[in-house]
């Protein structure tokens, strides 16, 4: 069996190889956003870190949620996906710091979720499912063969998203 393809911080991976499994490991405040075109068997996964693209960054820069979603969409279309078929899901955006006095300061997770929802709305892409927020890390997997997307938390089992 092929090794899963690790989608690291600030990366987008799109695949149409049925043997591929795309994985974003240990998402905390980061967001994993997946796009699946079941009809054409094309899947993509984005691992975005921060909510908004900074001035000067690439318009498809995958480090940021807003430009990363545009980058993922662009890569999906380039690979031959049909926009009308796209099923979008997202997971992550947790607030990892729960100690008093610290949690409010960097709630990047919540801001990432907000940025994703705004961007998807602007691009007119409906969100099919999400498992976001909370205080736990998550691992997201995309099985290209079936288009299945799963989420796992630490000590837990893989569940369909």
């Amino acid at each position: 069996m092929k090794e899963p393809i690790s989608v690291n911080l600030g990366e987008v991976v799109v695949s149409s190889d049925p043997a591929d499994v795309l994985v974003a490991y240990g998402l905390g405040s980061c967001l994993g956003i997946t796009m699946v075109d079941r009809q054409r068997h094309i899947c993509g996964l984005l691992h975005a870190v921060l909510p908004h693209r900074l001035n000067g960054a690439d318009p498809y820069c995958a480090k940021y949620v807003d430009s990363g979603i545009e980058g993922l969409l662009n890569a999906m279309l380039k690979a031959g996906a049909d926009r009308r078929n796209l099923i979008v899901r997202m997971a992550g955006g947790a607030n990892m710091l729960t100690a008093a006095g610290l949690s409010q300061t960097f709630d990047v997770g919540t801001r990432n979720i907000e940025s994703a929802l705004e961007t998807l709305q602007r691009l007119n892409l409906p969100l099919h499912a999400q498992e976001t927020g909370g205080h736990s890390g998550r691992t997201v997997r995309v099985y290209v063969a079936s288009g299945r997307v799963t989420v796992r938390v630490v000590g837990g089992v893989e569940k369909d998203l």
């Binding site: 240990g26 905390g28 980061c30 870190v49 947790a94 990892m96 890390g137 691992t139």
Partner: peptide, 14 residues
């Protein structure tokens, strides 16, 4: 916190 390494390190990364 006790969690996945990646998730903990997101605090720094973010």
């Amino acid at each position: 916190m006790v969690d996945m390494v990646g998730a903990i390190l997101d605090i720094i990364v973010a």
